[in-house]
Structures are given as structure tokens and as C-alpha cells.
Design a binder for these strands. Structure first.
Lengths: 407, 407
DNA sequence: CTAAATTTCTCGACTGTCGAGAAAAAAATC
DNA sequence: GATTTTTTTCTCGACAGTCGAGAAATTTAG
């Protein structure tokens, strides 16, 4: 059902627009904001005056006059307007980062994960402690933390911060909302890790291509397989989704997966799957809990030296990925695919299989091979994606709250 | 990039909102519009006055007073405000329908398709003639036809009315825009047939469930396999997409498909594929051009009597469909699946395979089987979908044009 | 015929955006 | 040093849109 529009909504949207451009381009002068947003100067004045009164942005000190004429007054977000805690859950550690409203990192530390398998409840306690720790290390009041942004591999509920399935805890659901609610007034959001990579890459593309950007997929290769899709939404924003790609069916009655199903893509292309194929272990063998990268490096070295079965293992993994990607492309529009994660170091071995797997589908034959690119530095992209999403969520919340509560 | 908002946009959106509720609920009184849209009475007055001045809606005659109080003045669309031509292309005929702005069917006829294989260009000429014929049978001026809405099976360009691939013409692209542009001032849109089915079913669901409606997929079974997905967009509207499901890879090196690839879902679940399996013809046999339904009925009858290989054919088809659906669900959220098309008459034989195929994936095991329902009357749904989409496109065009051009 | 009920319409208040031009402030020029 | 030029910021009035309240219209009930 469509919903009605009003003048307040106009102001809200334009306020968010101003905050977003400020975020994208850093401290800006009045005229620059007007240029970027295409809002009239008068409107920019009105909006920035409101935001300043609400203590969300501030006029920066006069900088050394750059040109002649009246010197510019730069506007920037007030760092102390609010804070964000980013929690990145990976298989062996949890990283906590405290970030101010301007996106500047204030404090960060990592905690080893207990490899306790029975630890869903204990794990949540660990997160609670970590959050309290990073808060108490700073001098920031708890109320000033506006958002806690969490990421993990696995399947996430699309509307609530609930981890539905993860490689580590399986189907032991974790509801971060209810776990943190009593202690934290902050909003809690949870995203799939590869989704954040896709979001970050989408922002990059947008900066480069501008309005021409249509869509992009990020594929993360590692012990598990992740996929995130970002595409331009109908009213200009980016819409992201993180399908359950790693556990999409690759082949009926295929290899046994960590999730308990058979034939998942991960069970043919994840690190443990490559290991299994390389050592000719039966496909229904229970997957290894953890595979040291060194182990895979050895197999890769052998494959590069022409060892048949080792090469075959990577090729099979590539095929599974390529088939899966072709299926994704059959269900979406054509889009470039960015490959990240620790598995990119074997891209030379995977590539042929990926392309062959892609080429087996009608859509790829018709539209041609999608652009494949390798993107390093997955960790930074995850963090960037956190900032992108979290800060724009904060912007929106601040604007709608500011409109109701006054200053 | 986000885009700026303005008060004119507010008026436009609210005008569209009024037209949409008028379309959904039929002729309405002032107060009812206010109730449905949640716009204030004053705003409704302003908007309807504008629309009336622009000759888009009209006050209907006083009806026999229903209750006491001042009698209601019903508002309704002016039928003669503009017209729509719906063109439904199916494998054996092309149906032309002339519809007025209120959605009322004025004229309709079908023309047999020439089964000429080399007929892409001639086919377009046929469509041109058909359009001119339905126009001249009426007394309507060409300029009054605001939109030509075309549907076909196959793959459609998402931004322009170009048929990229179709079962009949293969990769002989048909660009309806440029074919009709010289003669027709009307806008031309082209949609996949099953997408329209999905759109129509989505509208039904919305009427029943209201805001609870999230998403729905329509699966069309026949000689070819189609899929449409409709889901609630971020700002209330419905977003639809028609993936290339029928030619998604089911199984590497599987059966030969009409598209020339191997292993497409259609090549395992289309009518010709069922025939091929039932008669134990090798999977790389060139598919039959056309399969009479009577032929399949016979196989179905044998299958229902326990004939092994016939039953197997349907079961294999179901498996391909189920696997494909499970893959789709791995990439989207959970949603009910409505099955339509001539193939529904074999649903009793397909069902077990579909469910088994679905059950082989992680996501279905976790979230449970999606709701499967059989929906008859695909033809009506296609037409309904046309009206839904086309008339709302017209509404929007009229409002934005009206705002610029004055009355 | 009057009162009540119900619908439609109008008016004033409020909020929003915009264009134009005034005000501010520094560099360039005389 | 005074004046002009240039650039940026701010303010004012015009215009568009929504809303609530209440007036106007019109029928039924008594």
C-alpha cells in the first residue's frame, strides 16, 4: 500500500540528504552542500541552522582563507553527537570498535573466541562483557552510544537482529536485540559479513560511476562461502541483501556440509571441501572443524606444480562457485562480481572452474561472462561497510527523533 | 545517490495515492478517500479539485441517498481520459484488448500466430497491424491511447521494452519501442508473462493480508517454465521481477534445452522434457517444437495407473522444479509459491518431486517447506496483472504531466 | 417545520522550498 | 589607506502544500 506524503517528510528527507553528503564528502561549506544536494541556498541555511541548533553539526573554525572573498565556514558533524560500537564476529575472534559520529575510530580491541562448541549463551555473555569493556575504557556515557552494529557470517533475520544460523553455532539462534536490550538503550543491528563487503564496494562504485552504478555482488571465499548483493533501489538508495548462497544447493546428494545438508556450494567450494577432494576422502565424511591456511597452501603449491588431484580439487570448487553464480545471475540482472576473502589467494587455481561453471548456463551464454574482479582487504571492507550502514542509520534516527523532540 | 525532495513531489505522490485508491476501491466519496489515504479532508478537496479541473476524474451523478445527511458525491475516473491497449503474446496467438482508463474492457480479439520460424520481423508487422486494427474498430483517436502494454514469455530487458530472448524467436531480439515509436505516441511497456501473474497475485494478497504481505512467487508450468517474484518495496509499493528461472541451470550437462544450453530447468521440467523422459529418449535429443496437451494427458493417465517410467518422468520434473525453487529461496526471503499454467493439471504427479527437491536444501530444512498453492486461471491473472501495472503507470504519467502542462 | 446527522467545502495557521538580493568579509586595485 | 571586486552567507517575501476547525449544504427523523 502506498503511503501519504507530507511537508515534514520533505524536510526529513532533505535533512538526511544533507547529513549524507556531509558524510560522503567531509566538512563542507554552505555553497558546496547546495551544489551537491541541488537544494537552494536558502534551504541549506534553514536545514543547517536546525541541525546546528540540535547540536548535530557545528561550524568549524575559520580555516586559513583559501581564496579571496568572504571566507568559507565549514560545517561538519559534531563528533560528540553520538557514538557507534562495531562488533565484528569472526571464526577465531571478536573485534570491538568504538567510533564517533564523524566515523573516526576511537578505540579498538579484539578478544579471542572460546572454541567452546556449546557456547551460544556464553558467547552472548562474552559480547556483553566486551561491549561494557569498550565503553568503560572510554569516558563516554552509555546513553551516547546510539547504535551497536554487529556482523557475522551466516544467515541473518532480515527485520530483526537475530542470527538465525551461523557456521559456529548452527541453528542455535542468537537474538542480540533481547540480549542487549536490558543494558543498552542503543539500537542494535546485525548484518551478514559479506553483505557489508558488498555495501562498501557498492559505495565505492557509486563514487566512481555515479548514477551509472546498477548492481554488484561480493563473493567471499574461505572456510565458508558468503555472498552479498547490492543494487540501486527505486528511489536512489542502495538495497542490499545477503542470500544464503553458501548453502544453496549445488548438486543433489553432493558432499556433506557443515550445516548437515548435502550438496551445498560450501560443501564443494569451502576450504574443508577442497581439502576433502584433494585427499580423496569420501564426500560424506564429516567436515573438518577448522582447516589451517597452511594446509591449503600446500595443496595449492602442489596444484601449481601440476599435481593432478590437487588441481582437480580447486577446479571442482571453482565449478561449484561458477554454477552457483550462474544461478544467481539467472535470478537477478547482470552484475559484476567482486571476489574477496582468504580464498582469493587461490584464484589462479579456481578461475578456470568458475568460468566454466558460469558458462554452463543460458544467461551467461546470452549476456556474456560477467565481470570478475578480485578485491583484497576484506577486513577493511567489512569495517567500511559497517560505517556506511550504521552511520546512515544513525543519521536517519537522529533526524526523525530531532523532528519530534525538538532541541 | 539520494535525491532531493520538494513540496511538488509531495503533491504528486499524494495525487497518485488518491488515484490508486480510487482504482482499488472503485468510485468513492470525499470522506472515503480521506479515510483510505489518511489524508485530511482539506487535502482531498484540493487534490480532487485539481484532478477534476484536469479532466481526469469526475463527480458522478447523485445516487439515491443511502443514509441521512448530505448525500455523498462519488468521484470516479473519467473513462475517456485515456485508453490502454493490452497485447498478450502466447505461443499460438496474440490477443489484443482495448481498455479504458477505468479498467473496463472495450474491445478484444485474438489473431492466430503464424508458426513461421523466420518471422521475427514479420511478427512485429503483425503486431503493428493488430494494434491499428483494434484502434480503427473503435472510434478513439490515436493520441488518446496512452499506453501499450505487451507481455510474452521469455526474457525481457528490465529498463526498455525489448524482448531479449523468447522461446519462439530465440535470440532474435525484438525492440517494441523502436518498432512502434513512429506510429504511436503512446508509451510502450513490455513484461514477462509470469511477472504479471505474480503482480496480480501480489495485489490479491495485499487486499487480503494488507500490510502483512511480504513477498510471493508465481511459478508457471507448461511447455516452458516461468517465474515471477513480487515483494513489498522499501516505500510501500510492490517490486516485481521475472528471473530467467526456466533456463537456470538445474544440473550440469543435463538435458538439452530449446535454448541450446544443457541442463536448464525447462529441459527437465517443461512439457517436452517430461515427454522425453517418459519415452526414454536420450536427453540430448533436440526438443520437440510443440507438444499437444493430449499427449501429456496420456502419460499422466498411465502414471496415475502406476506405470513406472511415466511416473518417473513427472517425478524428475518435480525434482528439477523443487531444486530450482530451493535455490531461489536460498537467494531471497521465504515466500509462498503459487503454481499456475497448464501444467497444474499434473500437480498431483509433480508434487512429491517438488517437495523432495525443495527438501534437499539447507534453507528449506531450516525454515520449513514454503507454502505451495495451485492457482488456476492463469490467463485472467495475466490480464489482471496488465491492468494493475499499466493503469498505475498511466496514473503516474498523468500526474507528473498534469503538473507540468497545466490543465 | 425544526432538529439532528452527515457530507462537502472553505479559511487561517503552519511548514516547507525557492529566487533574489542584502550583508559580510577578505583580496585586489588604485 | 580607500575603494572595488569577488565570494560566501544570510534574510526576506512569494508560493505551494497539509492540516484542523468550523461553516455550508442537504437529507432524514420527529
Amino acid at each position: 500500500m502506498l503511503t501519504k506524503s507530507s511537508t515534514e517528510l520533505v524536510r526529513q528527507r532533505n535533512s538526511v540528504l544533507v547529513l549524507a553528503t556531509l558524510r560522503r564528502h567531509g566538512a563542507l561549506a554552505h555553497t558546496e552542500i547546495s551544489d551537491f544536494t541541488r537544494l537552494s541556498s536558502a534551504t541549506v541555511s534553514a536545514i543547517t541552522a536546525d541541525l546546528e541548533k540540535a547540536q548535530i553539526i557545528e561550524k568549524s573554525e575559520q580555516q586559513a582563507a583559501s581564496g579571496r572573498g568572504r571566507p568559507r565556514v565549514l560545517l561538519r558533524q559534531r563528533r560528540d553527537c553520538g557514538y557507534l560500537i562495531v562488533v565484528i564476529i569472526s571464526s577465531d575472534a571478536v573485534q570491538y570498535s568504538l567510533v564517533d559520529y564523524a566515523g573516526k575510530l576511537i578505540d579498538r580491541f579484539s578478544e579471542e573466541r572460546s572454541h567452546d562448541p556449546d557456547g551460544a549463551a556464553r558467547f552472548v555473555n562474552g559480547v556483553r562483557e566486551g561491549l561494557n569493556r569498550i565503553l568503560s575504557r572510554s569516558r563516554i556515557e552509555r546513553e551516547k552510544v546510539l547504535l551497536i552494529s554487529i556482523s557475522s557470517k551466516g544467515l541473518v533475520n532480515s527485520t530483526e537482529p537475530v542470527l538465525v544460523w551461523s557456521p559456529i553455532f548452527g541453528s542455535d539462534q542468537i537474538d542480540f536485540e533481547s540480549a542487549l536490550k536490558p543494558e543498552w538503550p542503543a539500537k542494535v543491528i546485525l548484518d551478514n559479513e559479506t553483505l557489508l563487503v558488498a555495501a562498501a564496494l557498492g559505495a565505492h562504485e557509486e563514487n566512481v560511476k555515479g548514477g551509472d552504478f546498477r548492481a554488484l555482488a561480493a563473493l567471499s571465499l574461505g572456510h565458508s562461502i558468503g555472498l552479498g548483493i547490492v543494487r540501486r533501489g527505486s528511489h536512489g538508495g542502495h538495497e542490499v541483501s545477503a542470500p544464503n548462497f553458501g548453502h544453496m544447493l549445488h548438486m543433489a546428494n553432493g558432499g556433506l556440509c557443515r550445516c548437515g545438508s548435502r550438496g551445498c556450494i560450501e560443501a564443494h567450494a569451502g576450504f574443508y571441501a577442497i581439502l576433502r577432494t584433494a585427499f580423496e576422502v569420501p564426500l560424506d565424511t564429516i567436515p573438518a572443524k577448522f582447516v589451517p591456511v597452511a594446509e591449503l597452501d600446500k595443496i595449492a603449491a602442489r596444484a601449481r606444480q601440476g599435481h593432478r588431484i590437487s588441481g582437480f580439487a580447486f577446479r571442482q570448487a571453482g565449478l561449484a562457485l561458477g554454477n552457483g553464480l550462474s544461478r544467481m545471475l539467472s535470478l537477478t540482472e547482470r552484475m559484476p562480481i567482486a571476489i574477496t576473502g582468504p580464498g582469493t589467494r587461490y584464484y589462479d587455481l579456481l578461475r578456470q572452474g568458475i568460468e566454466e561453471g558460469l558458462g554452463q548456463s543460458h544467461i551467461v551464454r546470452m549476456e556474456g561472462m560477467p565481470e570478475l574482479r578480485v578485491v583484497a582487504d576484506e577486513q577493511n571492507l567489512v569495517f567500511e561497510g559497517h560505517l556506511n550502514r550504521a552511520l546512515s542509520v544513525i543519521d536517519e534516527d537522529i533526524v526523525v527523533a530531532g523532528g519530534q523532540g525538538g532541541d
